[in-house]
Amino acid sequence: MHKNKLLDIFQKGKAVVNGWLAIPSSFSAEIMAHQGWDSLTVDLQHGVSDYQTAISMLQAISTTDTVPLARVPWLEEGIIMRMLDAGVYGIICPMVNTQEDAERFVQACYYPPLGQRSFGPIRAVLTAGADYPSQANDHILPIAMIETKQALDNLDDILKVEGLKMIYIGPSDLSNSLGCTPTFDQEEKPVVEAIDYILRKSLEHGVIPGIHNGFPPYALKMVEKGFRFVTISSDARLLGMSAKNFVDTMRGGMDQGNQKEALSKDQASGY
Score class of each variant (00 low, 15 high):
Phe10Leu: 09
Gln11Ile: 07
Gln11Val: 08
Val16Tyr: 00
Trp20Gln: 13
Ala22Phe: 15
Glu30Cys: 04
Glu30Tyr: 15
Met32Asp: 07
Ala33Val: 12
Trp37Ile: 09
Asp38Ile: 00
Ser39Cys: 10
Ser39His: 13
Leu40Asn: 11
Thr41Ser: 15
Val42Ala: 15
Leu44Gln: 05
Gln45Thr: 09
Asp50Gly: 08
Asp50Asn: 10
Tyr51Asn: 03
Gln52Ser: 14
Ile55Tyr: 06
Met57His: 09
Leu58Tyr: 00
Leu58Ser: 10
Leu58Glu: 13
Gln59Val: 15
Ala60Ile: 13
Ala60Met: 12
Ser62Arg: 15
Thr64Gly: 00
Leu69Arg: 04
Ala70His: 09
Glu77Cys: 10
Gly78Tyr: 13
Gly78Arg: 03
Gly78Met: 06
Asp85Pro: 02
Asp85Leu: 08
Ile91Trp: 12
Ile92Val: 08
Cys93Leu: 13
Pro94Ala: 05
Met95Cys: 06
Asn97Glu: 08
Asp101Asn: 07
Ala102Gln: 04
Ala102Gly: 07
Glu103Ser: 01
Phe105Cys: 12
Gln107His: 05
Gln107Pro: 04
Ala108His: 02
Cys109Leu: 14
Cys109Tyr: 08
Tyr111Asp: 01
Leu114Asp: 14
Gly115Pro: 11
Ser118Gly: 06
Ser118Phe: 07
Ser118Arg: 06
Pro121Gln: 06
